[in-house]
Amino acid sequence: MAFSVPANLEAEITELISHYPQKRSASLMILHAVQEHFGWISQEAVEWIAARLELQPINVYELVTFYPMFRREPAGKHVVKVCRTLSCALGGSHELHGHVCQKLGLDAHAHGLQTTADGKFSVEFVECLASCGTAPVMMCNEDFHQAVTAAKADEILGKCA
């Protein structure tokens, strides 16, 4: 089946393109919009965006492989990002990440994004989230959480339906 986007997303993309004197500039914002809708960026999505912006697919694909926030495979329903960098590490982010992984049955030493077998959660150890004064911090989907203890992490995960 050919790749297609719903009308509201199409309208959003048209609006985004209008923000720039050159269409290509909209590619990052469109990738965000597409990933928000589909959960990841498929090869079909890459080709569709490229056509929309009158680019070659490689021009879009190279963004997906360069920018860490874009995913080339589906993630879990809820995506948890724990900050790894120094201030959070000094504040216990390795323990937090280990706790979250253990609770969800994931490997705390694995690299990159990993997803639970039931597809409910993905966990990633990410670089600085710019809230070093309230370490350790994590994001659950688009919500930001500060000074996260193991108990607070359990509560956050528990609220994810």
Partner: peptide, 26 residues
């Protein structure tokens, strides 16, 4: 207009940021 980055530290470097705003790798 607001333009969102996508997780690359190098976008803070001003010429990398400009490339990124042009829709390219930073």
């Amino acid at each position: 207009h607001v333009h969102r980055g996508a997780g690359a530290y190098i976008c803070g470097e001003e010429t990398g940021l400009i490339e990124s705003l042009e829709g390219k790798r930073a």
